[in-house]
Design a binder for these strands. Structure first.
Lengths: 320, 320
DNA sequence: GTGCAAAATGTAAGCGCTTACATTGATTTT
DNA sequence: AAAATCAATGTAAGCGCTTACATTTTGCAC
């Protein structure tokens, strides 16, 4: 069987209490001690069992993961994030509990903390957590959020794209924003930033009609098809998600355009496999997950709230 | 705080042992007793804590959920299944641990059972579980599988579609199979059964070139577009997934066909929201999840293996 | 009725882990 | 130099739950 806390304690010459504290990140334990304990854990292959009640005795061993109604785990991005969180959480003995939008309220009592994906301004889910005093961390955009949150630098990433287009000699930029009735504004900041930066750089950016979904390649395709007659006026295109960019590129190719010769296409997210040879902005999803979990710890310890913005990175590939 | 086992025991007049047994489904407890206990649990709002070590003391409180490389939680279907499992598992105090295709082997030691999605013949993941003696249940098609498995009645569902087309006076059927290099054969049984039944019914079925993905609406669209000149020879179309059917229908409409007047379109799965007004075959995903979890229990108790096939249901809507 | 196995329940000893409280030794204060 | 403080660790009492084992109840043959 897998070694237990007691095994680690015996092997390293400390008490179970100290080992426990070291693993939980208690400030009372000396750094060298923690290091020794961690080393011994690695050596013996320690894995926490039971989903141990961490930080607060008697509290739930679960972290809830709430998806927005529209995410609904449908997007690759959300699913990757989910997996990263699940994996990293495993190492601490906690467990992730997926919470659907229907049973959010009823789940509050059975989790020790909540991670909320795709928050929007004044998201009612955050309110509910607050009322219950439940530690919560949101991943997504919410300018009004005064709690714990972590977001990728959407605006910065979009500006990188505009600058890249300008640098590579493009003259006229199209921007394809996405829109969904229930998600208003989650991703919109990308289009807005790209628009602004494009103006500054003299790319005369123009918004196309919005795509009626966040993550459907087909909708990206049809949007471009619908705007076919306008397209020849542009030589570069920015889409708010990679799914849209993929659909858009396919539509351009099917309409006889050469990508990137006639028109460069860039997306946002950089999803493994899917984004293949697309020029895009990479989000570091494992890091996003790690940061969210760090914030969960802090929230549980009632430390002061913190809003983190993670850097993103331009990845230039075949499409632009 | 939430009531504990002891609270239930006190309130119902039994010992904690009996209550625990009742909740775990131990055969030693009298049916009336179990009923009384369950009733009291409902009354007091009992929720298991800690992710209690169920059935076998000291065993892991986690059930692993392994996705195939291509599922990668990308498909709506998989994500819905995931959520259903997660929700139902919650009620027993277990937790679901998402296992990526990369770290399957290393996860084996940290879960008490494994649910494997999208298995194919001689799936190596099943082999690995066997070697470790880890209880496992597969969801997916694997004719060679002698362990626990549960699958929807794909063949039966596809035949329902063919019969529906025949009954509504269609004469010539197109079938759009899907294909993915790593998923060979998972869903293929649908096309095969529809082909067979179509022949019997005089629908002169014909296979179109396969769609190079399992769940992309865009690929469905482009496949139909590519076969545009052949399409007018058909008056009904069966697609192996709803995503394909949605893409196909969009392509047909964009090409000037009337759906379902000129050509009827049917898919498979019936995904909430997404499948909206599509004629399709409904899978009962919550039931699939429940069955899988039942099998997990049996597997843990080392009961003899069982292969379950769940019935499906034709849902006729606007597209055909 | 008595006996006896099987069925149903209780008793209590854990499980691996957390944490209130006690202890130790080093550092500072007086 | 004694007293007071503090950082670091140990001690041990739980946490909610499971389960080996003991005990009681039941059903049924004689």
């Amino acid at each position: 069987m897998s070694p237990t806390l007691a095994d680690i304690a015996a092997a390293s010459g400390y008490s179970t209490a100290t080992v426990s504290r070291a693993l939980r990140g208690d400030a009372a334990v000396k750094p060298e001690t923690r290091a020794a304990v961690l080393k011994m854990c690695a050596k013996l292959g320690y894995k926490p069992s039971v989903g141990g009640r961490i930080l607060v005795q008697g509290a739930s061993a679960f972290v809830g993961l709430s998806l927005g109604r529209t995410d609904h785990a449908t997007a690759r991005y959300v699913s990757l994030l989910h997996q990263a969180l699940s994996q990293q959480l495993t190492e601490t003995g906690w467990a992730l509990r997926l919470v659907g939008s229907e049973d959010f309220t009823s789940s509050l009592s059975s989790v020790g903390a909540m991670i909320i994906i795709g928050t929007k301004n004044d998201d009612p889910r955050i309110q509910l957590c607050r009322e219950q005093g439940l530690p919560n961390v949101s991943i997504g955009h919410d300018s009004s959020n005064t709690g714990f949150s972590v977001v990728p630098d959407d605006g910065g990433g979009a500006r990188l794209v505009a600058r890249h287009f300008a640098r590579t000699g493009r003259k006229k930029m199209a921007i394809m924003p996405s829109w969904h009735p229930e998600d208003d504004g989650i991703v919109r900041v990308r289009a807005a930033a790209c628009l602004d930066e494009g103006k500054k750089l003299g790319l005369h950016p123009e918004l196309l009609g919005p795509v009626n979904s966040l993550t459907s390649t087909l909708d990206g395709y049809r949007s471009i098809n619908a705007a076919r007659n306008k397209i020849s006026g542009f030589d570069c295109l920015f889409c708010e998600t990679d799914e849209h960019a993929i659909g858009a590129r396919a539509a351009l190719v099917d309409s006889g355009f050469q990508v990137p010769r006639d028109i460069a296409v860039a997306g946002f997210d950089d999803l493994p496999d899917l984004s293949a040879d697309l020029t895009t902005v990479r989000q570091d999803i494992p890091r996003l997950a790690a940061t969210a979990l760090e914030l969960v710890s802090k929230a549980r310890r009632r430390e002061p709230p913190q809003q983190v913005v993670l850097p993103v990175e331009l990845v230039v590939r075949k499409s632009g």
